[in-house]
């Protein structure tokens, strides 16, 4: 069973293949994403992050979830040598580079806590997989052709319990910049897809590695438990050493 809603300005898709799947599970997960959107959307005047940016809320009185996201952002900044930073060029906070993966991860935990084993949760092209698809096979995820507006697949990967995140300058404009040089617009790399142990990890390192430009693939190469597929602006893909382990069914 597959359901979709537009939340956080992007399609959120939940597929559950367990026989025990109930509508409440879908509703609970969609409600969770709506809660995250209300709290973390920098586009909403009523969100907590907007209040923080307007200095209406002091950092020490932030909600627990906001504190957690700030803490994880700071940790990610350290792990990536500063290539991940929620402080934007204009000095405000924008944690959306972390919140999407974090919220997909938490949504997946909601399903697991209900005993659901075979599912995918995805938002805006970032995906957490668990178990098997409806045919009882491992999940087959297509990597989108970054040079096309249509659904075009340029690589298929086979995963069971992993997170898959793709970063790129597409659809929503240049939404990733290099935090170390805020005038540097990343244009050499068209997209970078990262497979990791879960979507939180895959997403934050995909975002960070993308900001590193052509060096990003080497950063992922060094991370144990992660593989990546980077497509440059000329349509040449470079993959980490064991990426091809995921391309066989």
């Amino acid at each position: 069973m597959r359901q979709e809603q537009i939340i956080m300005g992007t399609p959120v898709i939940i597929e559950i293949n367990d026989k025990e799947a109930r509508q409440e599970f879908f509703d609970e997960v969609f409600d969770y994403f709506k809660y995250v959107d209300e709290k973390f959307s920098t586009y909403k005047d009523t969100s907590e992050i907007t209040a923080i940016n307007k200095k209406e809320i002091a950092k020490d009185t932030m909600s627990d979830d906001m504190k957690k996201v700030f803490e994880l952002s700071e940790q990610t900044k350290k792990l990536t040598g500063g290539y991940f930073d929620i402080v934007t060029p204009d000095g405000s906070y924008d944690p959306s580079g972390l919140v999407k993966g974090w919220s997909i991860f938490n949504a997946s935990e909601i399903l697991k806590n209900h005993g659901v084993k075979n599912f995918t949760v995805e938002a805006g092209g970032d995906i957490q997989t668990s178990g098997k698809n409806e045919n009882g096979n491992v999940w087959c995820i297509g990597i989108q052709n970054p040079f096309s507006q249509k659904k075009e697949i340029i690589k298929k990967i086979y995963v069971s319990d992993e997170g898959i995140a793709t970063s790129g300058n597409y659809v929503r404009g240049n939404h990733i910049y290099n935090p170390k040089d805020k005038n540097d617009i990343i244009e050499d790399i068209s997209s970078l897809t990262v497979i990791g142990p879960n979507i939180f990890e895959a997403d934050r390192f995909a975002t960070s590695a993308y900001a590193m430009g052509k060096e990003g693939i080497y950063f992922i190469e060094k991370l144990d438990g992660f593989e990546a597929y980077m497509i440059d602006k000329n349509g040449i893909a470079t993959m980490t050493t064991n990426f091809n382990n995921y391309t066989k069914q």
Binding site: I13, I141, P146, F147, Q149, I154, A237, T238, T241
Partner: peptide, 22 residues
């Protein structure tokens, strides 16, 4: 690291990661 030119494949997948520009 190994490089290759990207090549279109059939779209028989469970879901898709990424988005696009031209």
């Amino acid at each position: 690291l190994i490089s290759e030119a990207i090549a279109l494949q059939d779209s028989n997948v469970d879901t898709v990661s990424g988005a696009s520009y031209t």
